[in-house]
Each structure stands twice: as C-alpha cells, then as structure tokens.
C-alpha cells in the first residue's frame, strides 16, 4: 500500500545504532543497504528541521540529500563509538555540524560520488511533511516530533509485516484506529471482519502489546542504556500528546 520507503523487505531489518556500527565494519555485506534503508526511513526529521530553519522547500531538499550523502560516506561515522547516547541527538548533532561546514565546501555535487540514497521521496515531502510557517516550535522540537513520527511509522510498518499472514489482525487495528471515523465498537469490527467478538478483543490486545514491544525495541536501539530507554519512551509518547 505504501509505496514509499520500504524497509529491507524480508528478514533483514536494520535498526539505528546497529546499522551505524555495522556500517563501520567493511566486512559486513549489508552495511550499505542498511544505511540506505535507514536514511529512507528517517529522512523526514532532517527535512522538517531544515524547513523550520527557514529554508525553502527546494533548498531543504538539496541539503537533506547532501546531508545523507555525507552520512553515507561513512567518514561522519568515524568518531561513533560505544557510549554514544541517543541516536536522534547524535543525528541532530551530526546535522548541525554538517550545516556549519556546508558553506565552506564548494562543490556539493561532488560529495558522495553519486551515492545519494535511492529514494528520499521528496515528491511526497511537501504533502507529507506539514510545515506551518506560524508553528511556534523550534527547529529542534520539530525535528524531535518528526523523529517520533518516523519511529511510529517504522513500528507500524513492522507490525504490518508481522501480520502479513493474518490480515484480519491488522485490519482490526486499522478499523479500530481509523482517523476519519468514530471509534467502532468491538461488535462492529467483529461484524465487518466476520470474526467472533472475543477474537476482536484478543486481536486488539495482542496488537497493542506487540506494537508497544516493537516501539520499545526500536527505541532501545536508539539509546545507550536501559535507564535512558525509559526516558526515551516517555519522550516518544509525550510527543503525541
């Protein structure tokens, strides 16, 4: 359904720090693909940040491309070590660093040697990323919010893939949370899907639990320690309040 950043497609599903640390290991055959995938999944926060910095759409697109090309050159990853903190802060710091240096570099085109991620889907950027000029949020706050959105989308995609064999389960969640409708009763969902009523409650309960696990596992990959995780999880959910 979503034609956008399809992640991996199969058993190989990279996450955040794993990907970055892996990318430093030249022996890992997946390192390039994994990084590419990561960029495709998490480009939106970078773009949103740049737009909130007051850049035009075109300019922000170019800079996002440039940043990810730089990211993929791997030089940026040289200093990445264990004890690395939160991934989103790392990405933001890297981005700020990149922007500070950007104007000094004459030839943006040369960077990356054509290794720009396959599909940072900018065709959808303007329709998918809501930029309100009057939005009082700072670029950093906008970045974090967009980051949470990207994590949520990633988690939702993973859930969808896990449920690909059991369509009813995913459909139940979809109908339950459908944005343009009143919350349907379990009975209504059961009727629509042709399932016993008890199954619907179970399906939703299971999906809820699983989605939370997936989100936690993604966020676990984005932080240093278990202590950090709780803060990150709280911050994640708070950004949807």
């Amino acid at each position: 359904m979503t034609t956008g950043p399809a992640v991996g497609g199969g058993a190989f599903q990279p996450t955040l720090w794993t990907v970055v640390l892996r990318a430093k290991d030249p022996a890992d055959p997946h390192r390039r693909t994994a990084l590419n995938t990561l960029c495709e999944t998490y480009w939106a926060p970078v773009y949103v940040y740049l737009r909130h910095k007051g850049r035009s759409s075109e300019d922000a697109k170019d800079a996002t491309q440039g940043f990810f090309a730089h990211f993929l050159e791997l030089k940026a990853l040289d200093r990445v070590e264990r004890g690395r903190g939160r991934f989103k802060n790392f990405l933001l710091a890297l981005l700020e660093h990149y922007l500070a240096n950007e104007h000094r570099k004459a030839n943006a085109e040369k960077r990356g040697g054509g290794a720009v991620p396959r599909s940072l889907d900018f065709a959808r950027a303007e329709t998918e990323v809501r930029i309100d000029p009057a939005d009082p949020r700072t670029p950093e706050a906008a970045f974090r919010r967009s980051w949470s959105m990207a994590v949520l989308q990633d988690a939702f995609e993973k859930l969808r893939r896990e449920f690909s064999a059991r369509e009813a389960e995913f459909e139940a969640v979809r109908i339950h949370l459908f944005a343009g409708a009143q919350r349907p009763t379990h009975a209504a969902i059961a009727e629509r899907l042709g399932l016993p009523l008890t199954d619907v409650a179970n399906l939703l309960h299971r999906s809820r639990k699983r989605l939370r696990e997936i989100i936690r596992s993604i966020l676990r990959e984005a932080v240093d320690s278990d202590e950090d995780l709780d803060g990150e999880v709280a911050e994640f959910f708070a950004s949807f309040e």
């Binding site: 359904m1 979503t2 956008g4 959808r124 329709t127 998918e128 990323v129 809501r130 949470s148 959105m149 949520l152 989308q153 988690a155 939702f156 969808r160 969640v173 979809r174 339950h176 949370l177 459908f178 944005a179 343009g180 809820r208 989605l211 939370r212 989100i215 994640f236 959910f237 949807f240």
Partner: peptide, 19 residues
C-alpha cells in the same frame, strides 16, 4: 495525507496512544 499514505488511514496520535 500523512495518515492516508503512511499510516493506512490510522491517526498517528491514536496509534501512539493505543500502544
């Protein structure tokens, strides 16, 4: 359009709350 394209019609806030 975000909801339609990336979240299969599901409201992200509701989804986060659900989780």
């Amino acid at each position: 359009s975000v909801v339609a394209n990336r979240f299969a019609g599901v409201c992200p806030s509701c989804l986060a709350k659900f989780a």
